[in-house]
Design a protein around this nucleic acid. Structure first.
Lengths: 155, 155
DNA sequence: TCAGTATAGTTCAAACTAGAACTAGTTTGC
DNA sequence: GCAAACTAGTTCTAGTTTGAACTATACTGA
């Protein structure tokens, strides 16, 4: 997680890791009470209010890699929450969508979780959060840029 | 990861998850080239320049839970990088420390990784990063506070 | 002193994770 | 028109993750 010690510029990383972990703990604590795992919740939340989408699209939105997604979806199908359905136009692709039961689950579980997490955000000023967003976005851009650069250097 | 959609105040979460993931990808890309996993690197980095520490302490510093740590340390012992050694004063506790070979690995791998990650931070202003740190810390405090509160409510 | 309680680590089951190799289908360029 | 390159998903392996149950040891208070 932290991958670093106390070098000056890198205390950001420590803070980032610890903050993300604190979010995950709070979020997962609630999600587990609703009999889902965090990745399962992510998939249900992402499919809610949509006609369904391909694994690729789902993978991009949830940040779950395609290999992992196969297993997560398998387990959601066992629970009767989502379904897979072949595509006409591109036969490699699979459409994943909520079942009626999954739709009901989404309606029950998604607003409840938003409300739950909101109790944390209510402790903070909206302006501060906007500022945080902007700065996180800068940092993310730097990581992505360097990753691309380093990947090219390898060849 | 994201666990949320586009509710106004919660875009922070999206940004937090994506930024953290970008960091992990960049960091792991380098760590894998050095034949370590991110948790293994974390343990080596945390033990470097110390006389060793208990699993509990190691767990707190690395954010790796104790159950996971057992396995990570098992694999590092197989690699000959760390050692476990029983304690006199508290026989429940185990001291984990780098071996000579682990010390050498640390010297080689840790500065290299700091330098690697620094190429990303060099793209940013130090003042911006300090500001980011402060705001992350606020957010983390809010998550932790609500988690404690919610845990109490359960009983 | 000794029962109750707390703590340090390990073990376990179920799930997730990444990347790499693979299969099957699609697109491109010559 | 067809080989080469690309893309979508699945499968695989090794490792990590969590919480919970368990073992062994240490502490605490009547």
């Amino acid at each position: 997680m932290s991958h670093v010690k106390k070098e000056p510029s890198l205390s950001v990383i420590r803070e980032l890791a610890r903050t993300f972990q604190a979010f995950e703990q709070l979020s997962a604590f609630h999600i587990r009470q609703m009999d889902l795992t965090p990745p399962q919740f992510d998939v249900v939340a992402t499919l809610g209010n949509t006609p369904g989408m391909s694994c690729k699209e789902l993978s991009e939105k949830t940040l779950i890699t395609k290999g992992t997604l196969t297993g997560v979806i398998d387990r959601l199908i066992e629970k009767g929450v989502v379904s897979r359905c072949a595509q006409e136009q591109d036969r490699r692709s699979v459409m994943v969508a909520l079942t009626a039961q999954g739709e009901a689950l989404f309606q029950q579980v998604f607003p409840a979780h938003i409300a739950y997490m909101k109790t944390a955000f209510d402790l903070l000023e909206p302006a501060d959060m906007e500022e945080l967003c902007r700065r996180l976005s800068q940092l993310r851009a730097a990581f992505n840029q360097v990753l691309e650069q380093k990947k090219h250097e390898i060849e």
